[in-house]
Design a protein around this nucleic acid. Structure first.
Length: 645
RNA sequence: GCCGGCGUAGCUCAGUAGGUAGAGCAUCUCACUUGUAAUGAGAGGGUCGUCCGUUCAAUUCGGAUCGCCGGCUCCA
């Protein structure tokens, strides 16, 4: 029992230590710096408190602030600090859970009186006070029955203990008052916690279930150093500045009108122009890639939605029926039934397949008011929606084509980091999925093989498929490393059956085609918003609503400026002229704020020599050059659709 | 939908312990004719989101409602 332990360290070396040694002591024996920098240990693969004695031979790794898992532990400990501060200030508060999350942590509380922003300051101050007391995070073993009695006043904790705890569970204390049912591990003591800040208060449902009580969640951020935290807060500020709602307003691209209703987007002239470019590009691609463009009505009889199953599965998200003289009509929430009707309008031969029907289809969905968000979550939006009907032997190629198309979209718009998620079923165990095991196998295999063929990095999400079929989603990281979901390719085993879709096979018999939904921008509105944030409003040349602004220095240069503008227009460029009687500095500032790619300054010298002084929004003053040369160059750059400038 | 916060000029925001409001920018007018990120002066502009209530009096207090923001839930 008291025989020494043999520890295996990450470099493969071995170390013998007395029984009951803690990881922290081991770290110290290696070096004081390591001990100072240590946050948590990994013992036999599991995270372990630095101060928890080892229990036998083990592999041991000391995790320092360089390790992402250590940061999670650190944030979890900060969450405990928050809870301890809240209980000191507001002892009647009940605890729910307080996990680390990306960039920080939160803790959920139940308290009759809501927290206010002023409370947040008080709590944060108290956290610092407790931190300075340097209390230890002490791990204690508690017998389950005894624990339930100890936590009797904490109903939510009891619920968790009942559900998660073994016969003996662990709790972590912080000083004499605070104890929390918790798996741990934690940093050794509160003085380890350096930089943190409480950020916001929000409502959250107990266990994420909206039928249960609503708790108050306090969000915070925590970092190993003040600098890391400052960088993070700075990044938040930057993100705020490129918020598409702010930029969209500043550049006069879009608006949402209260009189018209929430979640409904108005595209102003410049926004509409950019949108047209996005749509034109997409339609061009459809035709190039063998899709047929179709258009389907915006309102259709309710029977159609009954047949498609939307009425029974999706009615909550649909606008209410309109009574017309002969029937009830519904605004379309999806384009698929319309495309299906076109497919089914005539008999299809196996030779006709694949049939690819595409539409920029505007759909309306009733989204709950609290979920609306700028262009990202709206009630009316346009999907670049296509449905592919094909034979089983074609499906893999079709998926490959969809994925290549999706990657092309990403590259065209300047997104270089992305990955795929394949959502599969649970194997049929739950019975919640439609379709036969054969269908699921066929479809999921096709998805996996297609991902491999395209060379996409993909993760498999078990039991995340839609009930009607597996899918693959493409997610991207934008200029600020924020993830967005973009393209989606989804199998549908349900609709072909509901609409009795058929084709006549080689054998003369009738067969059911496979059907795939796919949208690459997803929603044009949302994609527009993502682009706005990605580029911070500075659209690349080919998308910029105004590509060049001609700036006459004085009124006498206006005529020459118009000639320059005419040349730009003749080259197919969108050029404006700022002929106001203002100083050049003023005009430049405005053009710059409008993120116009090229400013062409013309004064006496340029007018005399047939030149323009070129200024780019990024590069500043580039000097004077012949007009024709400059126009040709800009036109060529626009045509190249470079995503960077 | 739920929890919390917010709603004052086109924009960003100040203000009134209840006595019908103010700045900067923008707009308009005039002067300046300008050389790479804001020329100066003057003028116009708000039923203080909407409705109801309390009050001699409400932008201010109370209630309702609409919208927005941060989350939760849900999702393209």
């Amino acid at each position: 029992m008291s025989s020494p332990y043999t520890l295996t360290l990450p470099d493969g070396s071995q170390k013998t230590v007395p029984a009951g040694t803690t990881p922290l002591e081991v770290a110290r024996s290696i070096g004081q710096r390591l001990a100072d920098d240590a946050v948590v240990a990994r013992v036999n693969g599991a995270l372990w408190d630095l101060t928890r004695p080892l229990e036998g031979d083990a592999t041991l790794e000391i995790l320092t602030s360089k390790n992402p898992e250590a940061l999670e532990v650190y944030r979890h400990s900060t969450a405990h600090l928050l809870a301890a501060a809240v209980l000191e200030l507001y002892p009647e508060t009940k605890l729910a859970i307080g996990p680390p999350i990306k960039d920080g942590f939160y803790y959920d509380f139940d308290r009759p009186v809501p927290f206010t922003p002023e409370d947040l300051e008080k709590i944060e101050a108290r956290m610092r006070e407790i931190r300075d007391r340097d209390l230890a995070y002490e791990r204690r073993l508690v017998n389950k029955d005894e624990g339930l009695r100890m936590y009797a006043h904490e109903a939510m904790k009891c619920e968790l203990i009942e559900e998660r705890a073994d016969a003996v569970f662990t709790e972590y204390t912080l000083g004499p008052q605070f104890a929390d049912f918790c798996r741990g591990p934690h940093v050794p003591s509160t003085k380890r916690i350096k930089a943190f800040k409480l950020l916001s208060i929000a409502g959250a449902y107990w266990r994420g279930d909206e039928k249960r009580q609503q708790l108050q969640r306090i969000y915070g951020t925590a970092w190993f150093s003040q600098k890391d935290q400052d960088d993070y807060l700075h990044k938040l500020e930057e993100a705020k500045k490129r918020d598409h709602r702010v930029v969209g307003k500043a550049l006069d691209l879009i608006s949402i009108q209260e009189l018209a209703g929430p979640g409904l987007i108005f595209f102003h002239p410049k926004g509409a122009l950019v949108r047209k470019l996005l749509e034109d590009w997409m339609r061009e691609q459809y035709l190039k890639r063998g899709y047929d463009l179709v258009n389907t009505p915006h309102v259709m009889r309710e029977q159609l939605w009954d047949r498609s199953g939307h009425l029974s599965h999706y009615a909550d998200n649909m606008y209410a029926a309109m009574e017309l003289d002969d029937a009830r009509y519904r605004l379309k929430p999806m384009n698929c039934p319309g495309h299906i009707l076109i497919y089914a309008d005539r008999q299809r031969s196996y030779r006709d397949l694949p049939v690819r029907l595409g539409e920029l289809g505007t759909v309306y969905r009733y989204e709950r008011s609290g979920t609306l968000h700028g262009l990202f979550r709206v009630r009316g939006f346009t999907q670049d929606d296509a449905h592919i009907f094909c034979r089983p032997d074609q499906i893999e190629d079709e998926i490959v084509n969809c994925l290549e198309f999706a990657v092309d979209v990403l590259k065209t718009y300047g997104f270089h980091r992305y990955k795929a998620e394949i959502s599969v079923w649970d194997g049929g165990a739950s019975g919640k999925y439609d379709g036969t095991p054969d269908q699921w196998d066929l479809a999921q295999n096709a998805l996996h093989r297609a991902v491999e063929r395209v060379g996409l990095e993909a993760t498999v999400m078990a039991d995340e498929a839609a009930f009607y079929g597996p899918k693959i989603d493409v997610k991207l990281l934008d200029a600020l490393d924020r993830p967005w979901q973009l393209s989606t390719v989804q199998f549908d085993f349900t609709l072909p059956r509901r609409f009795n879709l058929e084709y006549v096979g080689e054998d003369g018999g009738k067969h059911q085609p496979l059907m795939v939904h796919r949208a690459l921008y997803g929603s044009v509105e949302r994609f527009f918003g993502i682009l706005l944030e990605h580029y911070a409003g500075a659209f690349p040349l080919w998308l910029a609503p105004v590509q060049a602004m001609v700036l006459p220095i004085a009124d006498r240069h206006t005529d020459y400026a118009r000639q320059v503008q005419a040349k730009l227009a003749a080259a197919g460029l969108r050029a404006d002229i700022d002929a106001r009687s203002e100083k050049v500095n003023y005009k430049i500032r405005e053009a710059q704020l409008q993120k116009i790619p090229f400013m062409l300054v013309v004064g006496d010298r340029e007018a005399a020599d047939g030149k323009v002084a070129v200024r780019t929004r990024k590069g500043g003053d580039l000097g004077a050059r012949p007009v024709d040369e400059v126009v040709a160059e800009i036109a060529a750059a626009a045509l190249a659709r470079s995503s960077d400038e």
